[in-house]
């Protein structure tokens, strides 16, 4: 074998260099500015720059619009997310363990994922023109996000060894029991991740509601979510309450994600 020229730079350093572009970009556009946001959330205004510590947070939490937005966001997590997870779990079970021919139907559920929200919101607004409650937004949320959950779950199902099912069938277990006792526990990490990603998507529902209500900054009260609150403060250039609510939301998401990842770790055998 011909001796290869030894590079002066060790392999590991080269691999580290591969991370540099991504790290630099994230530092410039996310990390450094995030600390400035943190700083903004602690001062009284951009000109005087007196530290007021948690005053902005207290003001934000006491703001009635913030409370309304927070309540609506919470309702979305408590109602729409479980509905989304249950429906995507049952649909992907049916797709993976039902008739092979019906697997083409998967497209119908995955397609909404790539359909632009603006297009979907238009037909939603036409179809639900006379509905005056939050249901259309929940439906749009489920319609839009079911695809990613089904993809993740189906991918997890295909990883399960067939012999597991055959053994269970030999024991005479019913299909429902098999799923409850074997399939679902086996995909628990993925299931937790799906719940996590759905909760996080529910924080992102602003785009759907904004377009559904035809680009207005003041939707009906029941749809005024955290993102509206922040968007409106953005337009008002109210950086202090914006920064406070951004930091607040980021901490919330941080906690949720960490809990999710820990749960996932706990369920992995």
């Amino acid at each position: 074998m011909k001796p290869t020229k030894k590079s002066r730079i060790p392999w590991n350093i080269k691999c580290l260099f591969c991370l540099v572009p991504s790290l630099v970009g994230i530092t410039i556009f996310f990390v450094i500015p995030y600390f400035r946001v943190l700083y903004y959330s602690l001062i009284d205004n951009q000109f005087r720059r007196n530290f007021v510590w948690l005053d902005n947070y207290v003001k934000t939490i006491q703001n009635e619009y913030f409370q309304l937005a927070f309540k609506n966001s919470l309702l979305l997590i408590l109602i729409a997310v479980p509905a989304l997870i249950l429906s995507s779990l049952s649909i992907s079970l049916m797709l993976s363990f039902g008739l092979k021919k019906l697997r083409v139907l998967r497209t119908a559920f995955v397609l909404p994922l790539v359909i632009p929200t603006a297009s979907a919101a238009l037909i939603w607004a036409t179809f639900f023109a006379n509905v005056d409650n939050v249901l259309p937004v929940y439906l749009l949320f489920i319609w839009k996000n079911i695809g990613i959950c089904i993809i993740l779950m189906t991918a997890a199902f295909t990883c399960i060894d067939d012999s597991v099912f055959e053994a269970a069938k030999l024991d005479g277990a019913k299909r429902f029991t098999i799923h409850r006792k074997i399939t679902i526990p086996l995909i628990m990490p993925t299931l937790i991740f799906s719940i996590l990603i759905s909760i996080v998507s529910s924080f992102k529902v602003f785009k759907e509601t904004y377009l559904y209500y035809g680009g207005t900054n003041y939707p009906p009260q029941y749809s005024y979510t955290l993102q509206y609150y922040m968007n409106n403060n953005f337009l008002k250039l109210d950086y202090q309450s914006l920064a406070a609510s951004a930091v607040f939301t980021s901490l919330l998401v941080f906690v949720i994600v960490i809990i999710g990842l820990l749960l996932q770790r706990r369920y992995t055998w």
């Binding site: 500015p33 946001v37 990603i197 950086y239 994600v257």
Partner: peptide
């Protein structure tokens, strides 16, 4: 996982 409304202000 961060929603856009958190990252958009830093951006």
């Amino acid at each position: 996982m961060m929603p856009l409304q958190v990252t958009i202000l830093p951006n």
